[in-house]
Design a protein around this nucleic acid. Structure first.
Lengths: 124, 124
DNA sequence: ACAATATATGAGCAAATGTTCATGTATTTA
DNA sequence: TAAATACATGAACATTTGCTCATATATTGT
């Protein structure tokens, strides 16, 4: 029974090297928050749609066959995560992707998934 | 009171165009499942570490300051999502990223986050 | 064979998440 | 001004998630 030294690291060398090159916790946390937004199929479909064209809440609801409320809640999250922007025309609010990177990241992941299992190469 | 037609689509033209180019639901679902794996800071840190070097459960637990059990549970999820692979040497199990794409996707998102708010450009 | 070690896993639990429902706000039209 | 429309949002609720704890399995060393 080791009563004093409970430090139980198998490979100190590996650990040292990884610690050296490991990024700060804060940016990793932010990246995971960004991915979290992609990580729900409703939001993923919204992003996918907005990657094609600017849309209003009503059209998104019709496209995804969901209530306006559900869409609106999700858009609020995407807005907070700075992934979508909007412009108001009268009482209609048009949403679009806030940054080209958002579409790129989604497209890269889509390609990965399609390559993984001989997909039908649908354009994303 | 419209009693018959409850179809309430604002922009039929936009909707038609988006429907035309929208990918199937199944692959979008898979992409969101993939992103879900990135969308937790513990898993994001694991992926980040394995992007640097192959590691065993014990070392990962030490690096991230978490229990072996927690790490093991997360590795099981990553394994199921085909994001990590492993090799056994005696009773030690070394994990590494299963596909180069995984690292690419993470790196791209990391870059996006760092560019967004003048980060310290830590290599991911 | 037995103890120690490295990892895996099921159950339980608190916290987070996504939807619905009801209601509020802003804008347009009659 | 009043009704209708497009959207936003708080509360409630069921589901999912991620951790801990206990226990199981496999491998090594004595």
């Amino acid at each position: 029974m080791a009563e004093f030294c409970e430090v139980n690291v198998i490979h100190e060398d590996i650990l040292a090297r990884v610690r050296e090159r490991m990024p700060e916790e804060a940016p990793i946390f932010e990246v995971s928050e960004l991915f979290k937004m992609f990580g729900d199929s409703t939001r993923a479909r919204i992003i996918c749609a907005l990657h094609i064209e600017e849309m209003c809440v009503c059209d998104l609801a019709a496209l995804l066959n969901m209530t306006h409320s559900a869409i609106s809640h999700q858009l609020r999250l995407l807005k907070t995560a700075r992934m979508v922007k909007y412009r108001k025309v009268g009482r209609v609010v048009y949403y679009s992707l806030d940054d080209a990177h958002i579409g790129e990241i989604f497209a890269l992941a889509f390609t990965h998934v399609m390559e993984r299992e001989g997909g039908t190469s649908d354009g994303a």
